[in-house]
């Protein structure tokens, strides 16, 4: 089996995996980073969004081998020993999550949005979330959370 090596949340990792191993499988099953979720099989729901080399990707639609040599950040890589990142904090403050299953993908997508657009409007946020489905919140508080998180990150 081929070897893949990458940096995940700042740590170098390496493993022999079948070529058909998806990045999300590698994260969940090999690295036990189970914060990244799988909610669909058609690349639509966004529960699996992580950052690869600084941009958001759907880890269910990428082979682990395609991330060979890359810098990967997952939801587990955001907080500082339990102290939440401002975007995570904004989700808590604004009740931007209910069951929590879509949440890691939402937060990772939100951070990519803010990187591109530090001051997103309501419509900017709604448009950006086209690839992230939530069944619980009706998006109202997710949009509020992301706008609040962006504001906090602007300082």
């Amino acid at each position: 089996m081929p070897t893949v090596s990458m940096t995940v949340n700042g740590k170098s990792v390496s493993a022999d995996v079948e070529p058909r191993t998806l990045l999300v499988q590698y994260l969940r099953e090999h690295l036990s980073l189970t914060g990244t979720h799988v909610g669909c099989d058609t690349s639509q729901c966004g529960a699996c969004v992580v950052h690869v080399d600084g941009v958001s990707v759907k880890s269910c639609t990428m082979l682990a081998a395609q991330a060979d040599g890359a810098e990967v950040v997952t939801i587990e890589g955001l907080d500082d020993n339990g102290t939440l990142h401002p975007m995570q904090e904004a989700f808590r403050d604004n009740h931007g999550l209910q069951c929590g299953f879509c949440t890691p993908g939402m937060v990772m997508s939100a951070l990519d949005l803010v990187k591109n657009n530090p001051s997103p409007s309501e419509q900017d946020v709604r448009d950006w979330l086209e690839g992230n489905i939530c069944r619980c919140t009706g998006y109202h508080n997710i949009v509020k959370s992301i706008q609040a998180g962006a504001a906090a990150m602007r300082g």
Binding site: L33, G35, R92, G100, F101
Partner: peptide
Amino acid sequence: EDQRFLTGKG
């Protein structure tokens, strides 16, 4: 609940 869900520890 949110601390664990937001940090991927659900």
